[in-house]
Design a protein around this nucleic acid. Sequence first.
DNA 1: GTTGTTACTTACTAACTAGTAAGTAACTCC
DNA 2: GGAGTTACTTACTAGTTAGTAAGTAACAAC
Lengths: 213, 213
Amino acid sequence: MDTQKTPTPAAKKRSAAAQERLDQIVSAAVRLINARGFNGMSLQAVADEVGITQAGVLHYVGSKHGLLVEVIRRYYDRSSTLDDYLSLFHPGGAFEGQSPKIPEYCRLLVAENNSQPELVMLFQMLNTEAMSTESPLHEYFNDRSRGVIEPEPDVNWSVPEGIDATEAISCALAAMYGLEGRWVARPDEIDYPAEWSKFEDILFPLPLWEGYR
Amino acid sequence: MDTQKTPTPAAKKRSAAAQERLDQIVSAAVRLINARGFNGMSLQAVADEVGITQAGVLHYVGSKHGLLVEVIRRYYDRSSTLDDYLSLFHPGGAFEGQSPKIPEYCRLLVAENNSQPELVMLFQMLNTEAMSTESPLHEYFNDRSRGVIEPEPDVNWSVPEGIDATEAISCALAAMYGLEGRWVARPDEIDYPAEWSKFEDILFPLPLWEGYR
DNA sequence: GTTGTTACTTACTAACTAGTAAGTAACTCC
DNA sequence: GGAGTTACTTACTAGTTAGTAAGTAACAAC
C-alpha cells in the first residue's frame, strides 16, 4: 500500500539529507572495497569513514549484503554506453543510416572509464570476487559478462571482410579489461588512453581496418 | 650456521611428511582464496579443511602473511614458460637461428593455463587484491606485470612489418587475462582454448600475420 | 499537543579473527 | 637412555565481526 503523499518541502529536505548520508556511506564502501575487497571490508570501517556508528550504517543498508546492493545500484544499474552509442544509429539518431564501428565504440568506453578510475577498480574487484560461485554477485556478473558480449540481434557492426564482429568485440573488451587492471594498479605509470591507442593498432590494424575505425 | 647434516632416511621420511602437510595447507589455502579472496579467507578455515587445529597451521606458516608467502612460492616462483620457450631459440636450442613467434608463444601459455584453472583463478584473485596499495602483494604483482611485458633486450620476435612486437605481446596478454577471468567464472560455458583461437584471428589476423603465427 | 517518523546512539551478543604460550607424544641422534 | 627436535594440541588473549534491541532527540503531520 502506498501511504506516501506529496512530501512537504521540509520532508523533501529531510529525505535529501538522508540521500546524502547514503551517498557518503556508499562512497566510503567503494573506497574500502577498492582497498580490501568486499570480503575484507567491514561495516565498522565504513562507519568510521562516514563519522557515524556501525549501527548507524546498518540503519541505512540493513545488512552487509544490503550495502553491496546499494553499491551495485549506485554504480552499475544505469543506461550503458553501448545503448547510448547504438541509439545514434537508430531511426531518428544522429548517424541514422550509417553502421556503428567497433573501434569507435571502444574509444568511447575507454574515454568514459578513464574519467572514473575508482569505478573501474570497483568493477575489477567485485567482478573478480564474483568469479567464485560463493559470491552473492556470481550470477549478476556472469549475466553481465554474457550480455555485453552476446550479439544484439539488430546491431549491424561495420567490420572488414573476414572479421567476426562478435569476436572482435569480445576480444577488444577482454584486452580492455586486462589493460584497465594494469592501469588501476599503477595509475602513475600507465596512460590508459595512450596505451589503448597502441592496442588499437594491434586489434584493428591498418590497412585491414581502413575505413572501419 | 648450518646445523643440518645428511638426513637419515627416517628423517627424510619425516620431513617428507611435513612437506606433504605443508602442501595440504597451501592447497587448502588456494581453494579458500579462490572462493573468498585472501582477505576473506581465515586460518581456521584452512585448518578445518586440512583436519588440524588453527595453531597447527600457524606452526607451519608462522602467520597469515607467511601463508601467503608459501602460496606465492609454491605457485609463482618457478621458471616461466616465456624463458622455456625463448631458450629454444638460443644457441644450442632446438630452433637456433629461427625467431620466436608471438602467437605461438601465446598458444603455449593458453595450453598451460588451460590445464591449471585453479592456478589461473588464484592469479586473478591475488592480482586483483594486489591492485590496492594496501595489499602486501602490491609491489610483487606490479613488478611481475612490468617484467612480463617489458621487452627483453635480446629477444627478437618475428612480427609483420609495421607491428610493434612489445605492443602485440602486451595487448595479447591483456586479452588473455580478460578471457581467463571469464573462463574461471564460467568454466562450463567457455571453452578457453577454442575462444583463444578465435581471439587469435582478431589479434593476429591473416593475411597480415601469414608466416608469423 | 499528541502521534508518528526519521536518524541516529548506546549497549549488547555470539561468533570469529590472528596470534601466543605452554604443553605433549613421537621420533631422531648419539 | 638421555637430549633434542618435530609436529602438533589445548588453552588462552585481545580485538573485530555482523547483527539486534532498545532507546532518544529532532522534527513533521494534523
